[in-house]
Design a protein around this nucleic acid. Sequence first.
DNA 1: CGGAGTTTCGGAACATGTTCCTAAAGTAAG
DNA 2: CTTACTTTAGGAACATGTTCCGAAACTCCG
Lengths: 229, 229
Amino acid sequence: MGPMTRSEAPNGRTGRPPVTSRAQILAAARRILERDGWEKLTARRLAGELGIGTTTLYHHIRDREDLLVQLINELAEPTLRLDLPADPRERVIAAATSIHDSLAAVPWAPEILTTDGFLGRLGEPALRLVEAIVSGALDCGCTPEQAVAVFRSVWYYTVGEILVRVHSAGRPAAQPPGDGFFGPDVDTSRLPHLSALAERWEELAARDTFAEALEAFVDGLLGRAARSG
Amino acid sequence: MGPMTRSEAPNGRTGRPPVTSRAQILAAARRILERDGWEKLTARRLAGELGIGTTTLYHHIRDREDLLVQLINELAEPTLRLDLPADPRERVIAAATSIHDSLAAVPWAPEILTTDGFLGRLGEPALRLVEAIVSGALDCGCTPEQAVAVFRSVWYYTVGEILVRVHSAGRPAAQPPGDGFFGPDVDTSRLPHLSALAERWEELAARDTFAEALEAFVDGLLGRAARSG
DNA sequence: CGGAGTTTCGGAACATGTTCCTAAAGTAAG
DNA sequence: CTTACTTTAGGAACATGTTCCGAAACTCCG
């Protein structure tokens, strides 16, 4: 469109010089995050922190989702670097646990985890753990199809655990027991076990069973693969 | 607050008569949903459909989340009614599958699934399936603690699967392979298996492996419980 | 210097969910 | 009828993410 570019930037750059960089925006976002909290990280406030116009942000960052993915990437990267066991099964579990713990430490904006190709948009440390899960599954005798399925299944479980737990965190009771547990017009006589467990539900739902269930899941997946292979 | 209520509604009701009911709002929401699509279901449009003021909605419905939970409840209820197998393991799997399929059929507003105590806010059909999972686990020799853990783990996996798949649905490729799969500056030589699978990733990630992985998960969880008990 | 080209900046505007506060519309007593 | 009380209705306003489009600031070339 328009006239052809006659000189394709011979030496220096052309155009109005930028007053802000993506790195500065990310730094300011981290500053707001730890100073004012997650809920204060808005586009206008972020622009104000940098002394620039609000819409200027959108020339350096596609949208809010883009910003948050970058932030998560920066904040979670150190935690994602760890030594992986040589044993395949242990490697799968260690990698999945590392992904879980790293992302669970960033409890704001959990919906970002479910964006399309989220792990692919992360940096090499995260992909290294994906590689570890896939390679571990392959070393356990999985076919490539099964190995990818193992990763995806473990990823789904991890995402779900984080999302549900984060959303239940602020509240006084996760899955409120007693009065509030059942809806308004529910016949509790048809739910004998739930009724019997109602008083203990809050306590039981608060327990962290991620690691145990993860092992059970991995064993189940790898066992199936070995049996069919 | 003001003078005491002298007469506590002797015969009829008092105050300005309501022009709208919660049921009418839900009906209008469903109408908009199937006529104009999910993205058109906004507070103002919903009020317009009913010919009432926008803020009037908030006297009948706490907030958007409340509306969506009610809607999901209405729409998913028929699917949640099915006969459950007598065999405990099959019962757990059938119940989890039913929950999954019912909620996956309501692909809008997936973030509602992770709200605090979501299943508890649903009606009796959904709770019946929760009861089925817990009772199945108990019948397989689980302790109450383990049974609740089984339910929660399966629920996490189900939620994660739905959320990730829904977010990947609209895009051309789930977890884009090839060029876009890896980030900008990633050393692919350190990711041999991922690189080798890059071309097939899209196809493999699109496969529906929920049922198989669910069985593996349940077997892993129940097997662990039986071994420890 | 001056116009052309190019890149960045940012104010105005829009649609969204939600809250505040006041008016409206009814019943019950005096 | 008038006054008190109660309940619902809804306009105005606010903060949010985001886009449109024109202005600003710089380089290059003649």
